[in-house]
Amino acid sequence: MINDVVLEGIVVREPWKFMEDLFFRMAVFRDTDLPAKPLDADRDAADYINIRICGGASGLITMRRGMRLRIHGFFQSRDYKENLAEIVEKAQKRSGVEISVDVKDMKPEQVAIERNSVEVVARRLIVLDKNAERKEKPESVST
């Protein structure tokens, strides 16, 4: 079986660390020969995927929003549980709006859902464009 992925896209959110690993979110636009994901009459929408760099939280790799990258890696999925209190807390942080939830006869911490996350684990990362102002040779990093 083959699990080999090559993606090229733009970092759209500041990276975050979890344990030893570095994560970031990347916008990837589809090739013209693939089915479109329409955004509006003039443009196609991006697909968004989380990228994981195992051991990348050591500080040797620096990611920033707007960087254009090529990632060589593989797909990985993880199952986890998340309770309603955690979901509401994340929604409040992202939206900046206070949210209250009333669950009959239960606390929000007792209401949980099983979730699944799919990410690409990077084995090789090539920086194609660090930012729009500076044009430099592509830089390659193997993980």
Rank of each mutant, 00 (worst) to 15 (best):
K135P: 00
I126L: 10
V103P: 04
I2H: 08
V12W: 02
A91F: 02
Q110R: 06
H72F: 11
S117C: 01
Q110H: 08
I126K: 13
Q76F: 04
S140Q: 10
I51Y: 01
R43K: 14
G96K: 03
S117N: 00
R94K: 14
E86K: 11
S142V: 04
E82T: 10
D4W: 12
Q110D: 13
V103D: 04
R124T: 09
D44C: 06
W16M: 07
G55K: 08
S95C: 04
I71T: 00
K93N: 13
A85F: 04
E14K: 15
E8V: 13
R25Y: 12
K135R: 15
V101S: 02
V121K: 05
P38Q: 02
V111W: 06
E133S: 11
K17L: 13
R13G: 07
A122T: 09
V111T: 02
R70K: 15
A46E: 09
D79W: 08
I2S: 14
I51L: 00
R115A: 08
V6I: 13
F18A: 09
V28P: 07
E114L: 08
T143R: 05
R64P: 00
M26N: 03
K93T: 13
M1A: 03
E82Y: 01
T143L: 15
K137A: 12
E89C: 12
Y48H: 08
